[in-house]
């Protein structure tokens, strides 16, 4: 069992899913309620990581964050080191990789809010922002939990993208899935198994939460 790798993965997953939740609130509400007819293009871009091989995504990220790219150079000027093969680089890569897992449930939950409730809030004098925080977000709460849990679980288990842009530096970029790969390659099946069991447990727990939320097993209000 590689505890360092497990803790690194948990730290990465927590940070990434938190940032993704913050991104998907405005992005999700724009996709759900916006009026621009070309929104489907943005939805397609957001969903690309679902179908792209992680190596393809990782390859382009490697190029985009490399020391010859504008982003890589800017980062180097600001922080004195490059982005690739660092924890920060891993965070940026994971944000893109897990984006659809956060945005899609949020958009679905926002679209599920009865438009009459949104209109009712407006005619009662509420600004769009107040309507968002008092009506839309609370009613979409199960969707927000789903978004957080799914992006957490997905980031925890990512492998291909991490390998491409993070490499395999212990304590910096060696996540638990890479540690499992290493253990299995070196025939240390016991260690690989213990870490794999932890990931399996996490995945099961995450999906149980998601399905329970969406079956309304727990809701913050009384169902009709």
């Amino acid at each position: 069992m590689n505890l360092t790798a497990l803790l690194l993965s948990l730290r990465l997953a927590a940070l990434v899913s938190l940032i993704l939740l913050l991104i998907s609130l405005p992005l999700g509400s724009w996709l759900a309620f916006g009026k621009w007819r070309g929104r489907f293009l943005i939805e397609a871009v957001v969903s690309l990581p679902l179908v792209l091989p992680p190596t393809v995504l990782g390859f382009y990220l490697l190029i985009a964050m490399g020391s010859r790219s504008p982003l890589g150079r800017l980062w180097e000027r600001l922080f004195g080191h490059g982005l690739v093969f660092t924890f920060e680089g891993l965070v940026i890569a994971s944000l893109l990789y897990s984006l659809p897992f956060a945005v899609q449930p949020v958009v679905a939950a926002f679209r599920g809010v009865d438009p009459k409730l949104i209109q009712a809030s407006a005619v009662l004098g509420a600004s769009p922002l107040r309507t968002f925080f008092r009506i839309i977000a609370p009613l979409a709460f199960p969707g927000l939990v789903t978004a957080f849990v799914l992006s957490f679980a997905h980031t925890l288990g990512e492998f291909g993208v991490v390998l491409m842009v993070g490499g395999n530096l212990p304590g910096i970029t060696r996540t638990v899935s890479i540690a499992i790969y290493d253990s299995a390659q070196s025939l240390d099946y016991a260690s690989a198994n213990s870490m794999a069991m932890v990931l399996l447990g996490f995945a099961f727990l995450a999906l149980s939460i998601v399905y329970a939320m969406n079956r309304r097993v727990w809701t913050p209000w009384t169902p009709r």
Binding site: A120, S121, V123, L139, P220, W221
Partner: peptide
């Protein structure tokens, strides 16, 4: 915009906020 018209509207479906109590629904405006 609707929020600045002060035109109260009761829809056929009523559109009460399901997550708020009767009091909080009434004091919302």
């Amino acid at each position: 915009p609707p929020q600045r018209r002060s035109a109260a509207y009761v829809f056929q479906s009523l559109a009460l906020f399901p997550h708020l109590s009767a009091e909080d629904n009434v004091s919302y405006g």
